[in-house]
Simulated scan of single mutants.
Amino acid sequence: MVTMKKCGERILFYSGKKLIVYNEDNIKTVDLPAPILKIQKQEENNKTKEDVDAIISCLSVSKDHKYIAVSTETKQVVIYNEYFEIIKNFTVPRIASNMCFTSNDSLIVADKTGDVFLYNMKDEILTPVLLLGHLSIVLDVALTDCGKYIITSDRDEKIRVSKFPNSYNIQSFCLGHEEFVLSVIIVQNKLISASGDGTVRFWDYLDGKQLSVINTNDYINEELVKNFKEEMGLQDAEVFALPITDMQCFSRENDIFIGISLFKYNKLLLFSLNPSLRINFCKHIYVGGSFSFYLSKDLLILTSTKILFFKLEGKNYREDAHKNISIDDVHDLRLKSDNNISLLYKKKFDNMEEYIERKRARLKLK
């Protein structure tokens, strides 16, 4: 699935091995350096190895847009400057699941075994500092605007709020989601989280108190949920909603705008939240196929053939059709639904029948 990020006036797309930068009428592909681990193994064994695909696992942009960090499935992290010149190129202990920059441009890397490390970019030799660990894969990581807290979410429905950088001090847990927590975002000093349970929840993260919730089941066809439930039932997973695949937020004055995409759902859901925490449903935007999006004062939707532009007018986003652009040149971007999301669900196992059969066999031997 293609993921979109904004870096100043540029739009970044990444999917598979491709990192693409769009700037006005210019589209270019950024080549990733060869995987370090592959080169090391070649040197150690003194023979040619098969090519290792540098599949991009995640990407992060610093708040000042001066740095872009790209991680790959080969445990490699490449940090570029704003001109896409390589600043750092190093490996991490395990494949990164997500990353974020600190205010002083250090990089926080969460990995697929549940550990979160800090890398100081000012160091000539980058040495990882372990900040904290979860018992399951960390799916997202964010720093609060004040820089005093680091927030992590995992596959086991947990959101942990820890002090930063002394992250062994836990401030709170935000508990309430019933499936993996895919995304956490800080907006207007509120924590907003999105989950595989189909809900977006709003928190007072210092106290771990839930303030409000959006249940996407209330806005989509029940038949879609029923079909997905049956599909996942064949994989021994019990589900009650379409999982959220992406959630993004934009803050303007006192209002917060929220965009939500769902697994195998061809519409983008748009909501707004006012200061009294009242949730307003804005609209469905029908796309008609797989898509990715980026939400800011402008809404950008990437389809298989073009980028659609929407402009925020009052309390709603309206299409700015004359700005829509064709991206036929970018023909290898994969916009197919990310079926790997099903791997994040816990599977139900019934061990009783096997136990009873073994017990019967023992009784027969007696």
Rank of each mutant, 00 (worst) to 15 (best):
K6S: 08
G8V: 10
R10D: 10
V21H: 05
E24W: 13
D25I: 08
Q40I: 06
N45Q: 15
N46K: 15
I55W: 10
D64K: 13
K75I: 01
K75G: 02
E85V: 11
I86H: 07
F90R: 07
F90L: 02
S97W: 09
N98S: 15
D105P: 00
D111M: 10
P128C: 08
L131C: 03
G133D: 07
H134V: 03
S136I: 02
S136K: 15
A142C: 13
L143G: 02
K158V: 07
I170Q: 12
Q171A: 15
E178G: 09
L182N: 12
I186W: 03
K190W: 07
I192V: 14
I192C: 07
S193R: 04
A194D: 01
G198W: 11
F202K: 07
D204C: 04
D207G: 09
E222K: 15
L224A: 08
F228D: 06
A237I: 08
L242Q: 05
M247Q: 08
S251W: 02
N254P: 00
F257H: 00
G259F: 03
I260M: 14
S261A: 12
F263R: 05
L270E: 01
I279C: 06
F281E: 01
H284F: 11
S296V: 00
D298N: 14
L300Y: 15
I301N: 02
K306S: 11
G314C: 07
G314V: 08
N316K: 14
Y317R: 02
E319C: 01
D320M: 10
D320C: 11
S337H: 11
D338G: 05
F349N: 12
F349T: 10
Y355I: 11
A361Y: 13
A361T: 06
K364Q: 14
K366I: 15
